[in-house]
Design a protein around this nucleic acid. Structure first.
Lengths: 243, 243
DNA sequence: AAGTGGTCTAGACCACTTC
DNA sequence: AAGTGGTCTAGACCACTTC
């Protein structure tokens, strides 16, 4: 664990335990440097991470303060797209709910042109084509349509689809997922998605289209995920640049 | 302009002008330090900003590479929620389209309980209540329902609503907008939003609920914005933490 | 072993806020 | 003027990739 991560965790714990209360001013960064025995830039990095999470707010010249916020507490939604990569499993793991998968389709095909473009492969490359519904505690929380080139992810079997494809990539292929480019949209589900997610009529879906990169820069996945619009949201903190 | 911003811009320009081409390896950071006459951490910061924009990809031990991406090019959508604060005007300004506003409602009221909670005000505080439709080149691109405490934003007039409220806050009140907490959702519009946005039946909206902070930590705005789901998307880059 | 990005130090100097 | 966060330096040392 890196130093700034340890400090970030420690401060977050103090906020969660109420040692630092909403609207409290935090110790100044120079004091924290002494307390943790690190340099200024390391404390700053930990604090900046907490700002991104919406837990604190910093003001130059004035200090850092615990945000008076209860938004993050969930409100019964399934969860939110995190800033981290790791697919559905990682996004939902933290909720402590039981994850299961229904595999509707698992085939190897020449993908449609749009997918060829997104994966940056030649038009005659075989890819897995996977359709799954992911459930939390037995309730459908997402459908995923995924394409992956078979030569980038060799040896994928049905059993891996029951769990997390990302675990397979990490543990059996020895690759790491580097990053993902995600585009979020609101749209209406088609009839298939509607039935997979057991949606009432007139419930839209929150769509996450993503391209995922391995640590060796190869694109290994293009996927489109649909979440029930009435149970899913995405939280983000934005800043002014000239702060 | 800060050093790392200048470097970020310079590298971005070189990518856009094709001096650095897709999949090209960029000069290593140590070389860039010499080229720009700055220290390592400053180059790193510029490069990290480009990674967040999805323009480059970095690999420890290997180098930094221009991403082979055309996703960012728009596809005719109105635009996307940026990482910056500044409301609709700033989000859309970069598109070069003409912005106009229709003010449907501008009143001062005691807000409903939910708004009181979000603004962290006492229950008897007067607030502006504003309902606007924002148009790009005359086409409805968003409806905004906004509440702002009158004592935080004194002197707001109808004329300011025709343009950008954020300009009024900056130029006439001398405040800066510090940051915003945003929650994104997919949902169906109510009849009013549907008519304001001139949506066909069965077109969902992309909802952005936000709480905005001034530079003195006061909450000055709670707003809910609805964008046409068929014309709006949000782009984001996610990373693995243990990179 | 060489290449390359990441973390971290110790501190200078700056910008903004508060008094 | 004092308080407090931001940018930046010059460099040490580390972790991962490539050969």
């Amino acid at each position: 664990m890196l130093k700034y991560e340890l400090i970030e965790q420690d401060i977050q714990r103090k906020i969660e335990e109420g040692i630092y209360k909403p609207n409290d001013q935090l110790p100044m960064e120079r004091e924290m440097c002494e307390e943790y025995g690190v340099s200024k830039i390391t404390v700053k990095r930990a604090m900046d991470a907490l700002v991104s999470k919406g837990l604190i707010l910093k003001r130059r010249g004035s200090g850092s303060f615990v945000q008076d916020i209860d938004i993050r507490d969930g409100r019964g939604a399934f969860g939110s797209v995190s800033g981290e990569v790791g697919g559905f499993t990682v996004d939902m793991e933290s909720t402590g709910r039981q994850i299961s998968s229904i595999v509707h389709l698992f085939e190897v095909v020449i993908p449609p042109e749009k997918v060829v473009e997104q994966l940056k492969i030649s038009a005659d490359t075989f890819t897995y084509h996977i359709l799954r519904t992911r459930c939390l505690d037995g309730v459908p929380a997402a459908t995923e349509e995924t394409w992956m080139p078979i030569d980038v992810i060799p040896g994928l079997k049905l059993e891996h689809l029951q769990g997390s494809i990302y675990s397979f990539i990490r543990d059996e292929l020895g690759h790491k997922v580097h990053s993902a480019h995600r585009t979020l949209r609101a749209r209406m589900p088609d009839a298939q998605v509607q039935s997979f997610l057991k949606l009432e009529n007139s419930v839209p879906v929150f769509e996450v289209e993503q391209i995922c990169f391995l640590d060796d820069r190869r694109i290994f996945e293009y996927s489109v995920t649909e979440h029930p619009g009435d149970k899913y949201e995405f939280f983000t903190v934005s800043f002014n640049r000239n702060v």
